[in-house]
């Protein structure tokens, strides 16, 4: 039993545990904080997969920026603990049914996956997923869409300011 496997087991368990807390916690703040820790442990699994960039982006963007927004909204709306528990409303029944259905579909798909991974195209190179290779492909191959995204962000920012300001 090597270290990698132990680490994977620990991260996987902790991810499942905190993901469970997200849906079981009664106060939205606790739920959000559990989501943060889920993201952190997921980032650990990414590191084990040698996807360092994805791990860093996961922590920076999800655990950092997006969760702060979540917390802001929770505080602004001043959400308290959920009051009604256990009442079977239509949306709850539908939600539960679709969750069970999804679980079934996932189970069936998982049982059909061959034990040996299929050879899906060319083998990934050793540098795949590192910062250097991602930077290289962004600034050569994907240059045009990358620049277009910068334009998109500028437009979105100007648009958001125009729509949000009340002068006009």
């Amino acid at each position: 039993m090597n270290v990698e496997l132990v680490l994977f087991g620990a991260f996987a368990l902790l991810t499942l545990l905190s993901a469970g807390l997200v849906i079981l916690a009664r106060s939205p703040i606790n739920s959000a904080m559990a989501l943060v820790s889920t993201f952190f442990f997921l980032a650990g699994i990414y590191v084990l997969l040698w996807a360092h960039t994805v791990a860093v982006v996961q922590v920076l963007v999800y655990a950092g920026a997006i969760m702060v927004l979540f917390l802001f909204v929770i505080m602004l709306l001043n959400l308290g603990e959920s009051a009604h528990r256990g009442k079977p409303t239509l949306s709850r029944i539908l939600g539960g049914a679709s969750a069970v259905g999804l679980l079934g579909v996932l189970g069936i798909t998982l049982s059909r996956v061959p034990a040996q991974p299929a050879n899906l195209g060319p083998q990934a190179q050793a540098t795949f997923g590192t910062m250097a290779s991602i930077g290289q492909s962004i600034f050569t191959q994907w240059l045009l869409p990358f620049e277009a995204v910068s334009l998109l962000l500028l437009v979105a920012m100007v648009g958001a300011v125009v729509v949000a300001k009340s002068r006009i």
Binding site: L144, A148, V149, V155, V163
Partner: peptide
Amino acid sequence: AEFITLFVNLEVLSVATYALTAYLRR
């Protein structure tokens, strides 16, 4: 001539027109 480029550019024009549509909000 590539789907991701195409999608991003489509969004550039869409986001700009969404904002323009809501420009006068009275």
